[in-house]
């Protein structure tokens, strides 16, 4: 495959830097990031390669595989990078670019819709049944009262995440499972 580098390739790296991956140019490809990565050996997410691809402007190669969404955000790469190039922040920035292009996994959309409509990342109804089972006190968090959910909705409505995370007005939670995105 032929790779042609020209000024257009700077678009990606500029965007990544604007979206939080400020130190991506510090990377000198030592590989410490990948050595501690929990997903490197089992997935297509290769953080060392991704860092290089960003500075080369290879946007399609990064986005096509959707591998940036396989990061568990454990921050081991960021912790161990001797250049402090903050690889995890580069992954977050790439996710923000990807979301702008409309590429975002289902689980993220599900969690965001749960939070928007229920005040929590998981379903509340099942939670209240479990609370009753163990005699936990009355729930007082956002999920306990519509007025708090309205407040959270108002906040989310005023940001880009409302459209990026495809918030639906009529949302029925799909499953009681903990999808979890922390």
């Amino acid at each position: 495959m032929k790779i042609i580098l020209n000024n257009n390739n700077k678009e990606l790296v500029n965007k990544v830097m604007e979206y939080g991956g400020k130190r991506v140019y510090e990377c000198f490809q030592c590989g410490m990031c990948a050595s501690g990565c929990p997903v490197a050996s089992d997935t297509e997410h290769k953080i060392k390669r991704t860092m290089h691809q960003v500075t080369l402007g290879l946007e399609e190669q990064i986005m096509d595989k959707k591998a940036i969404w396989l990061c568990t955000t454990c921050f081991m790469c960021l912790e161990r990078c001797p250049q402090n190039a903050e690889p995890t922040e580069v992954v977050f920035a790439l996710r923000r670019v990807s979301a702008e292009n409309g590429i975002i996994p289902e689980a993220q959309i599900e969690v965001a819709n749960n939070i928007y409509h229920l005040g929590h990342a998981v379903t509340v109804e099942k939670g209240i049944k479990l609370r009753n089972k163990v005699n936990a006190p009355l729930l007082k968090t956002a999920g306990s009262d519509k007025k708090y959910i309205d407040e959270i909705q108002k906040l989310i409505d005023s940001t880009h995440s409302y459209s990026l995370l495809r918030i639906e007005k009529d949302w029925k939670p799909k499953r009681d499972d903990v999808i979890g995105c922390d």
């Binding site: 923000r96 995370l165 922390d182």
Partner: peptide, 10 residues
């Protein structure tokens, strides 16, 4: 969580 909101818009 970081995986959803932080991942699309700080």
């Amino acid at each position: 969580p970081g995986g959803a909101f932080w991942s699309v818009d700080e």
